[in-house]
Design a protein around this nucleic acid. Sequence first.
DNA 1: CGTTCGATGCACT
DNA 2: GTGCATCGAACGT
Length: 202
Amino acid sequence: MILPRNFYDRPTLTVARDLLGKVLVHRTREGLSTGAIVEAEAYIGEDDPACHAAPGPTARNQPLYGPPGHAYVYINYGMHYLVNVVTEKEGSPAAILIRALEPIDGIPLMRRRRRGTPRGGEIPEQELCRGPGNLTRAMGITLTENRADLCGDRLYLDDRGIQVGRIAWSPRIGISVGTEHRWRCYVVGNRAVSGRTAATND
DNA sequence: CGTTCGATGCACT
DNA sequence: GTGCATCGAACGT
């Protein structure tokens, strides 16, 4: 079942928790690729210094201010695409960064997409979508998907009734401000979760 | 095992 | 001009 718009129109931390175990689906001309979300981070409002909405509305962060249930994709470090799902009602900027997936469908396609990057051909399955930059690469998500309606039929989230194990919360990864919030949630012990060497797991 | 550091493009000040 | 919501190669232990 495709998640309806009202799934996203709720408090962001609640949506983040409920995202774990849901299946991200991307249909392209190349084929279908899907994976279960095992790690996500919330970015909430202009008062969150790590949120792209912190400076107020700009050209880039416009999707954050838009209606829930849309994708917000941007370029990070000049070479990685990062994908978020927009939450909360229009005008209240918040989103959830998808940080890791457990691959389900289209694994050969994921491998092909990551080929050409270092280690492309021989990546273990559990590492294909480990990390926000890696998963967009494997899923074929680029700026073309920015603002995509997640209630459409190209890029969406599917509830397949997957039960995840224990969930934990930690500070968000890779930021220098807003570290007081434990707004990163993940499936404890899952091999596809990023940040494995840090004290940010368990 | 651990840490450091370069790549690389663009939004924003 | 500055600073990234990253990744992985290259080192050191």
